[in-house]
Design a protein around this nucleic acid. Structure first.
Lengths: 335, 335
DNA sequence: CTGTTAGCGCTTTCAG
DNA sequence: CTGAAAGCGCTAACAG
């Protein structure tokens, strides 16, 4: 039924080894022989079986990717970078959603390893002891994408979230703002929740101001919570002239809360955040934000992984990508 | 180095076959034996090799998914539905971006087939003869997700794009609008481009009106083109009271063009579209649109594929999912 | 309930 | 430049 390498060998009058060589572009084959084999392949409609190849060669040319949620634009942009580079190096991607649930993460890591992936890309929240344990049982390289862990023993690529937040808040400070509210995220989320919160604190204190706890609310990174927390600030009559939201989505929610209250951004209140999702330039006013290079985070992670998979020399295994303030129209100088 | 089923067999004093049975939950194993085997597995840290299993059993429990662009929210929401259901039935997903390029599509279909996936989910634009040819060489089931092809011989799941557009335009008509502009998409895209255009035409004609070619512009489905085409209508002083954009993104672009011109939505011009992406409820005014059940399209496709993969009886292989008008705030009755 | 024995389709020494 | 042969780690009859 299915045509195998053996059939091709017989048809073209050579051995399996030779067919294997031509299929794998091994140069040690006489052109004539090569042609005979190609003809037979064509004639029989032969398609190499990657599973058999994987078993024999112990390489599957596929890498496992564990991602919190592919339908979340941040992650899907990262995933695109991952896939493009994977594709460039002829790897395929097995994608698994984890919803940031530890159990699920560990579970998918294991099934990915059973599938004999040549490498693993892990995107997610926090890397716990259990994760590290699971990684240790792997005999293939792993890189953390958009996260990192304390010991810095596992290769990773991310931005400096604290500094990004710091820069955002400082941009507000530079425009004369002093009463700056924070719409943060769960501190359990080390990167976006905690580090970005820290950046806010640090910027405020660096400016010689004191942090006002009343000006801090924590949401869940999403639009609705940004809207809700901003509404709270407005209704509780806090005297804020600017707000820093740790994600664009929350910032956009905040903008709408402000607008819904009959106020204007940035005339009445300025808004800034971190991320630069596509939507940031699809709102009115256009959102000023600190851009995190999503695509690049994915692309660079994958590139790093490809090197690791072929035991290439690595100069730097803890990569911090640069971020950049994108000035648009949601921040105004305080007069 | 790596521990195999053979090592476990030796360690637990049984045969490979028995180990295989307990690993695969075959009930024909005495509890005691089962326990011995589990102990050995635990002790040796055995992890089944899915590649070897795949070669021996001719099943890989993985399905290939070809998707135009995972970073596009529409597709990533569909992909989430696909993954959830795949996961539920213990399948893994190999994801390949195609950018809707025919060459790339055909190419990834082939590599997916080489990887011996148990089934294929194809999302993309148009299904050509070449695609059909590629599908024919496959010995595994295929389902089209968010597309379909003329002959209706390939299982598919999608919505009725023409009817969805028709309903959107009719909603405008019902509110008294007569001068309705269309911001369409490339007609080469049969589903979103052509079918939705047809729905517009049909609704206008059904209402006894005549189509005004001056009120038709075609964009590229994205935000910027919606903005630009609307700007054109505004500047060319067309007397429109409402616009139907074939995608939410273009509709949001149109809303912003209107607002940028100092007019209001829906007071001055009403806007409606089809899709209901998440962003539709993250803009001001909230976008009125005909919802296409993205997640379900993915979920149902995958469910259909799981049935096909186990040769289950299929009652219906051309599935049309329902769409629904979501009334929000971007449409107003013409007074 | 358990063991034996063929392969699955390919890569990879090792010879020549 | 080419061929023979030994697996890769597992499943699936088949026999008992």
């Amino acid at each position: 039924m299915t045509v195998t390498i053996y059939d091709v060998a017989r048809e073209s009058g050579v051995s399996m080894a030779t067919v294997s060589r031509v299929v794998n572009n091994n140069p040690n084959v006489k052109p004539q022989t090569r042609k005979k084999v190609f003809d037979a392949i064509e004639k029989l409609g032969y398609r190499p079986n990657a599973v058999a190849r994987g078993l024999a060669s112990k390489k599957t040319t596929t890498v496992g990717v564990v991602i919190p949620d592919i339908s979340n634009t941040i992650f899907s942009e990262v995933a695109r970078g991952v896939e493009d580079i994977a594709n460039m190096y002829r790897y395929n991607i097995i994608l698994c959603n984890s919803d940031k649930k530890k159990e699920k993460e560990i579970q998918v890591i294991n099934t990915l390893l059973e599938k004999q992936v040549d490498g693993l890309l892990f995107m997610g929240g926090t890397v716990t002891e259990d994760h590290i344990h699971a990684f240790k049982t792997a005999s293939v390289p792993i890189v953390l994408c958009g996260t990192k862990e304390e010991s810095e023993n596992i290769p990773s690529v991310d931005i400096d979230h604290e500094k990004a937040a710091f820069d955002a808040v400082q941009a507000l400070l530079n425009e004369g703002h002093r009463d700056i509210a924070l719409i943060g995220g769960n501190f359990k989320d080390l990167a976006k929740g905690f580090a970005r919160y820290q950046g806010y604190i640090k910027a405020i204190e660096d400016a010689g101001l004191t942090v006002n706890e009343d000006l801090i609310q924590v949401g869940n990174f999403r639009y609705d919570s940004g809207l809700e927390k901003m509404k709270y600030f407005l209704e509780s009559n806090q005297n804020v002239t600017a707000v820093f939201a740790v994600t664009d989505e929350m910032a956009i929610g905040a903008i709408h809360a402000i607008q819904d209250a009959g106020l204007k951004v940035p005339e009445d209140i300025s808004v800034i955040s971190v991320d630069n999702i596509r939507m940031a330039s699809m709102v009115r006013p256009l959102l000023t934000t600190v851009a995190q290079p999503m695509y690049d985070i994915g692309a660079v992670s994958m590139r790093l992984l490809t090197k690791l998979m072929v035991n290439e020399e690595i100069e730097q295994s803890q990569i911090i990508l640069p971020h950049e303030l994108i000035q648009r129209n949601s921040v105004k100088r305080l007069t």
